[in-house]
Simulated assay, not measured.
Amino acid sequence: MKEHCPPEPFALYPPCTLPDWDTKASVRTDRSPYTLPADLEHQLGERHWFVPDFMPYLDHPDIVLAGPSVVRRLEANQLVYFLDYTTVLEHKLVNRSVETLIHDELGVPVPCAVKTAALQLYTDEGYHALFSNQIAEQVAELYGIDNRSRPARRIRRLLERIQACSPADEAMVWFLIGFVSETIIAKELLSAVRLPLVSTVLRMFKSHLADEARHSRYFCDVFSHLWPLFDDCQRTLAATQLLAILEIFFESDTDWLKESLASVGLHPDTLEYITTRLQQPHAHQQRVRSGAKVTLQALFNAGFFNIAHNRHLFQNAGYIDA
């Protein structure tokens, strides 16, 4: 494990807090509505709806041959899917996760400062759900995207994980879902803000990233604070659940992707080829290793991998080196 948690300026933050939240949180500072730009048609000549690097299937010859309009439609599909997923994730999962800290559900002492920051984070996530939904509604209406009622596979799988555990274990699993979510999303958003996206989308991602960078640091600190306080049973549960949660966060939603690709008239053989490649075990393993670097480093820093059983679990999964 050579990676490190986010570099400066995050390391300057007081631990387990969201410093200067009143002046830095997007819910406090955003003043303009998230409406699509008046020159949208012109922007789409040079800008993207979504990050092409997150859509590796765009380089398939059939899609390249289909031309820019098909590529933009697939980007729009992916953007709406991502924003709908984000709306549910932030509002129903991450906020439920921070409730475990606010209301002392984990059975270990949680300092007042940690609870205050958790309430601030809760407020942030509600705003992220709001602006994600606002943009998703506009893009969906523009393109007539109407297959939005089924929750994203990641959401369904995480909720199934909760439903399968005992009531005594639920709080821990909820907390770990938030921990993983908030320590992987900043990397995703950082890639987004480096590209020429439609101006409204880019502004939204920048606001989201600024908040999530602080949230990531917060959850790294909170995990480091809590890990020594957990008893052996809690630690064993956490190790097993973390492995499963990481796996879920980096799975491909192939059913939705097939619908998206079919919406632009691609041949069924092309759909099968693209989705089969994304489901390869090695591809999934690499997505975890690349996308969860901050999460894994936070575990390392907290002493999680000092326990041989935990280290072997993650080595056997291919998520860390032997």
Rank of each mutant, 00 (worst) to 15 (best):
L271H: 13
T100L: 09
P56H: 10
H282F: 02
L209R: 08
Q297V: 04
Q134D: 14
L83I: 09
H42N: 07
R161M: 13
S181A: 06
D253K: 05
L159K: 10
N316W: 06
R28M: 15
A210L: 14
H91R: 03
R150W: 01
T100A: 09
Q163M: 07
R157P: 00
V139G: 06
P9F: 11
V80E: 12
L158I: 09
E141H: 06
S224C: 10
A38P: 01
S260N: 03
Y85V: 01
Y122A: 12
D169V: 12
E251A: 11
V222D: 00
E41D: 10
L243P: 08
D22G: 08
I177G: 00
A186P: 07
Q43D: 06
T35F: 08
T276Y: 01
H91C: 00
H215T: 04
A210Y: 09
R150A: 04
A292D: 06
T200L: 09
D59Y: 02
P56W: 08
Q120R: 08
E170R: 13
C165K: 10
H4V: 08
F54C: 11
K206E: 15
P9G: 10
R203K: 14
S181D: 02
N77R: 15
Q286H: 04
D20V: 03
S97Q: 03
Q234M: 08
Q234I: 01
E212L: 10
L257A: 04
E75G: 11
P19M: 07
E8L: 11
E212C: 06
L209Y: 13
G45F: 00
P37W: 10
E3C: 07
V180E: 03
L12V: 09
A262L: 05
D22W: 14
F305V: 12
Y85Q: 05
A117I: 13
S97C: 04
R73D: 00
L36R: 10
A129F: 00
E41K: 05
A152I: 02
E41R: 06
R289W: 00
R72T: 02
N310V: 14
R194N: 13
D30L: 03
Y85W: 08
G107L: 15
R153M: 12
A113V: 11
L237E: 11
L65H: 11
A129R: 01
D146R: 12
E3H: 13
S97V: 02
V71N: 02
Q285I: 07
D253F: 11
E251Y: 13
A11H: 10
I185S: 03
L202N: 09
H208N: 03
P196D: 04
T295F: 13
R277M: 13
L142R: 15
L242P: 05
R47E: 05
I184G: 00
I145P: 01
V51R: 10
D62L: 08
A302E: 03
E41S: 09
T17L: 14
A186H: 14
Q285S: 03
L36C: 11
E141T: 07
M204Q: 14
Q163F: 09
N147G: 04
P14K: 05
